[in-house]
Nucleic acid binder design. Sequence first.
DNA 1: TACGGTACTAACAAACGTGTAAGTAATGGC
DNA 2: GCCATTACTTACACGTTTGTTAGTACCGTA
Lengths: 122, 122
Amino acid sequence: MATRKKNSTYSRNENIIIECDLTYAVNKIGGRWKILILSKLEEKKMRFSELKKEFDYITERMLTLQLRALEQDGLVKRTVYAEVPPRVEYELTEMALEFGPIFKQLSAWGGKHRNSAKKDVA
Amino acid sequence: MATRKKNSTYSRNENIIIECDLTYAVNKIGGRWKILILSKLEEKKMRFSELKKEFDYITERMLTLQLRALEQDGLVKRTVYAEVPPRVEYELTEMALEFGPIFKQLSAWGGKHRNSAKKDVA
DNA sequence: TACGGTACTAACAAACGTGTAAGTAATGGC
DNA sequence: GCCATTACTTACACGTTTGTTAGTACCGTA
């Protein structure tokens, strides 16, 4: 997601798949940490170090990568303050805020079926 | 997604992440082909070979894996007819049908921002 | 001069997802 | 007997994502 693409079928298929609006959207929020980050930022803008504290098992590298990808995709806005211990704040863009209601529904779906999945099978 | 998990931080983080209803939901539809498959099956139940024709760059292996995962997650129902050239039909479960409206919104989001992304940046 | 704090980056390694190619079973038609 | 058809499975290899560890720049403070 943040690295270069190689040739071969892997990428060829990727291109085909991205043709789909739905897949396009889901890809933007896919990955291990993106949704969690977006959820946090939905509440309020946060600094790098604050985000890091929220998910204390994420590494700085991963947090950086995910934030970069989100920024690249226009979902978060990054603001750097030229201070001495650096200060960088991240906040959602309008585009990302539009995910809000969708996230709520997905979350509701998850909550509903995560619990029932323990008993049912189909 | 269809393979066994190993130990180490990779899996440890996965567990932490799955605590979130939202991530739980998105993980069910993540992966390269799942959404496309679900979209197709939303229209009507289909045979393995029909699905294969729909996405002609998917390999049989991938299609099988994705369908198995979806079945495991309770999103598709698999029906085998004991005929001579085998016939297997796949259809969505109720659980999966509940994704319908959410998919529509995600798709709309994708359509909207996929086009504007070509001009804008933030 | 050494030290601490913030927000990173680089080089490397492990785990996972995806693709390739070939092979399987069952049976009806030739 | 031999082939075709369907829905797979297996063994292997590639490519990507994620994690590990160490290091960077900046400047104010001690």
